[in-house]
Each structure stands twice: as C-alpha cells, then as structure tokens.
C-alpha cells in the first residue's frame, strides 16, 4: 500500500534517515521497532508530509505522495498520531474530535453566513460520531472536559479517536503506548485490532513494548541508524543477530560482557 524507496533525511550533517526502504501491505498492522534515534519518528514525519525528504520517494497505492502537505495526505486517508500526544488544549474532548475532518462546509466564510442550516446538519452528524468514538474508547465521561486537562493516557486515546472520525486507509501510530498503563494499553490494542478487522485500517505502529508488538503486529520491521535492519515476523526479528546487537540485546550477552569487563 505504502512503498518507501530509499528515503534520506539529513539535518545538516546528521543523517536521521539514511536510505530506508520498505513496503507496507494493505490490511496489515506493521510494527516499527528500533533503538532511540533510529529514525523511526523522522521517517513517519517524512511519510506524513511534516518533513520533506532530502531524497527518495514515497508512494501510496502507486501514486507519488512525496512531500505533499499533511492536510492533503489527510484527505487521501493517510493519518498519523504523535509520540507526545497533541491536543487542542482549550477545546473539550468532543470538540477536539469534531475538528476532524478538515474541509467541512463551515470552513468557508460564505457558508459561515449563508449556509447555516447545512453546517448545523453536518455538526449534528459529527457530534453523534464523536460521541460514538468516545464511547468506543471508553472515555464518554470526558466528552466535555478540556482536552488540556485530561491524563496523558487519555490524550493518547483521543489521538486514536481522531483517526476514527474519518474513514482512514492507513494510520501511523507513534508510540501510542508510551506512558500508558497496562489496562489502557489493552484497550488501545483492542481498538487497533477492531479497527483493522472491522474497518480495514492499515496500521504502522512504532512501539517499544514487545508484548504489545507481539499481540497485534505482523510483520515487524526493525530500524537502526536510519536504515532498515530486518523485516519479518516478531519471532524472526527476535532471532535476528543484527537486531539483537542493535536493539533487543540479550541478558546473557550483557552478562558475558560484564564478566569480561570484570
């Protein structure tokens, strides 16, 4: 569905993404793992149009989407969430959800004055949908709370909820589980699985929690130093020497090193 071809992203002399190539199958939940600084989030930013790549190409269903601005990608069904949850802090959780999707008829000045009925109908539908999403995410009780005041985990749910307001095709989740407790993490995992099977969303998930990855992701891609190191099922990845070296590590190996050092 998404094909990433030899993407480079340099910040001055620093090569954050250094020739990453991967393809993401439609309908899959792909896990993206790797040590900190491996370039996972930068790659996300490049794909989602926040950053322009230094070189390389991203295609979605055969169409070149390299460097398109985020709001246009949004209308093509490509959505993402942030590592650190973002929210419109002065608006309520429901209003936050209702900001999605952009391009509503109330956004033109003409309709603001002369299309009030149409806007009202649209907002009613959106409101119902937002309430449904809040219900799905088990945070209905927060509908009228200011989004800036809810907990970090709840903001993560809200991020996920934002992707449910439209019929997304592919959603990039950046550390959706970071700073979230176990129970909430299970809620999130269930939501992802349901969206995948019921609504056919394709997901790409950056995550450090191996249990979470094991539960929902297939295949898994491991990145290190801006390159793709390995790709396969979690079991294959876990057995891969390079991955162990760069990221997972082994208790045994560390112990050996410690002993050798001592």
């Amino acid at each position: 569905m998404i094909v990433v071809e030899d993407i480079h992203k340099h910040f001055g002399g620093f090569h954050a993404v250094d020739g990453a190539t991967m393809s993401i199958k439609e309908g899959s939940i792909t896990g993206l793992i790797g040590p900190n600084g491996a370039g996972k989030t930068t790659l996300f930013n490049v794909i989602a149009g926040v950053l322009k790549p230094t070189s390389g190409r991203v295609t979605m269903l055969g169409e070149d989407i390299t460097g398109l601005p985020p709001h246009e990608l949004f209308h093509k069904g490509l959505l993402r969430t942030f590592q650190i949850a973002h929210e419109f802090s002065s608006m309520s959780c429901r209003e936050n959800l209702m900001m999605v999707p952009g391009g509503q008829s109330g956004e033109t000045l003409w309709n603001t004055w002369f299309g009030r009925k149409r806007i009202a109908n649209e907002e009613r539908a959106l409101r119902a949908k937002a309430d449904e999403v809040l219900e799905f995410l088990t945070i209905s009780h927060l509908a009228d709370h200011k989004a800036g005041q809810v907990s970090g985990g709840q903001k993560k749910l809200l991020e996920l909820g934002r992707t449910m307001m439209v019929d997304a095709r592919i959603v990039f989740l950046d550390e959706v589980g970071a700073g979230v407790n176990r129970t909430l993490l299970n809620t999130i995992a269930d939501a992802i699985l349901r969206l995948n099977t019921e609504r056919g969303y394709t997901f790409v998930v950056i995550e450090h929690d191996m249990d979470f990855i094991g539960k929902i992701c297939d295949p898994v891609i491991c990145m290190a130093e801006g390159k793709v190191l390995a790709q396969g099922t979690l079991a294959e990845i876990k057995a891969n020497e390079q991955v162990i070296e760069a990221y997972l590590g082994t208790g045994l190996k560390n112990k050996d090193q410690l002993e050798a050092g001592a």
């Binding site: 709001h71 959505l79 419109f88 802090s89 002065s90 900001m99 999707p101 952009g102 391009g103």
Partner: peptide, 12 residues
C-alpha cells in the same frame, strides 16, 4: 493552538 495537529486533522 497546535499547528501540526491542525494540519494532520486536514485543516487547510
């Protein structure tokens, strides 16, 4: 409030 998020919500 949040430019990045607004863009990713499809606001032009």
């Amino acid at each position: 409030d949040n430019e990045d998020l607004a863009l990713l919500s499809g606001i032009n």
